[in-house]
Each structure stands twice: as structure tokens, then as C-alpha cells.
Write a protein that binds this DNA or RNA. Structure first.
Lengths: 98, 98
DNA sequence: TTGACATATGAGTTGTCATTCATATATAAT
DNA sequence: ATTATATATGAATGACAACTCATATGTCAA
């Protein structure tokens, strides 16, 4: 296996890992439609503000989400369509297989 | 969020988790083209027979791969095209973003 | 400027999971 | 039957990652 291929596979693992956590996937699912501030995400997912904030930091560092600050609140949305597309492919695949 | 949606999201997490390990993804990548016996997979990936065998058990249990026994050897291949498709979507997405 | 609110973050804990090591099972060859 | 080879598997180990708890930072209102 070439060095380049190894790198690509490793990057693909990283990509899929984004979607491989229940909290993160619910965040992504929520943000598919519109932006949310942190507390609203936490409320929707019935998860602590801290847990959500940690995951959002991860998603920020991975360039999955972008933020918009408005007063005390920070609104999050998906950075581009690629993330949404892959999520929807996986999601619809699962839906079909029922 | 409805009970059913929660279940679907959880199942989607499981689906993505299949692809979220370096050893597993290399196995899947290898099996995209043709079947391999266990030792050949191990040799190709330069990973121990035991580590490969454990991952193959996982993939078997998840219905990702199927097996064909021939003498002392067991040949593995992908069970259907769905697994291949999602892998290729992720893989090509990463390739494009370079 | 003080207090209240929204978010971020560091440290510590816990659980999960991929690997190794040792060994079991199964098949083939002599 | 015995030995060698291919694969599978249980237990133990180690690494990582998600959460909690406590607290810091930043912003607004009074």
C-alpha cells in the first residue's frame, strides 16, 4: 500500500469518526436544518451544556461547524454541504434497511 | 425527538462506527476488489493474524462480510454493495478535498 | 461594578475498544 | 495417530475518548 493511500485511508477514518458518536450525530442531525445556540442544542438533546460544548469544540476544530456570535449566545451551523451529504447518505441507508 | 428517530440515529452511529477504525477500513478497502483469506489480509496490512481475526469476527457479526471455507483457509468478501458504496463515498470525498 | 447569564475549558473518572498473548479448534499431510 | 498449518477466541492490557464537575471567560443589564 502506497504512503499516499495509507494517508487517504487514515483521513477517511477520521471523517467517519466524526459521525461515530451518538451526541455528535444528533448535533449534526439538528444542524442539518438550521442554526442553534449551545443551550438550545443541549436542551434538544437532553444533554449537559458542558458535554455539548466539548463536542462542539471538537466539531469546530475539525471544521465541521461554524459559529456566529450574537450577544451572549453563540450560534452553530454546519460549515458546508459535504458534511450534511455524507450524514444523509448514512441516515437514509439505515432508513431503507428496515 | 421521536423514539423511532432516536433509534435510527443510533443505528446510523453503528453504521459509521464500522468505518471508524484504521484496521477495519483497510480490510474493507482490500475486500472492495476481491476476496482474501485471513493470512493474506494480515500480510497485506502488516498486522497480526489475531488482530485481523478479531476484527473479522466483528465484521461478520455486523453482517459486513461473508465467508467461504476452502480447506484450512477461510476467504472473506464484502456481503453486499451497500458497505462498498458508503466506503467509496467517504474515500472519494477525502480524495477530492486535497 | 456587581450580578446574572451563556459558553468554554481543564482535570479527573470511567467505559469502551483494539491489540497482544496464549491457547483452542479444525483441517490436511505424512 | 501425529504434526503442521489456518483460523478463532478468551483474558488481560493499554490507549483513547466522552462525560462530569468545577471554574474561567465573556457579555449584558441594573
Amino acid at each position: 500500500m502506497s504512503e499516499e493511500k495509507i494517508k487517504t485511508i487514515a483521513d477517511t477514518v477520521k471523517l467517519f469518526k466524526i459521525y461515530s458518536d451518538y451526541t455528535r450525530l444528533r448535533i449534526i442531525d439538528l444542524l442539518v436544518n438550521k442554526e442553534y445556540c449551545v443551550q438550545d442544542i443541549a436542551d434538544n438533546l437532553e444533554t449537559s451544556q458542558s458535554a455539548i460544548s466539548h463536542q462542539l469544540k471538537l466539531l469546530r476544530d475539525l471544521n465541521v461547524v461554524k459559529t456566529r456570535k450574537q450577544g451572549k449566545q453563540v450560534f452553530y451551523c454546519l460549515r458546508d454541504n459535504h458534511i450534511k451529504e455524507i450524514f444523509l447518505i448514512g441516515y437514509s441507508h439505515v432508513t431503507k434497511c428496515k
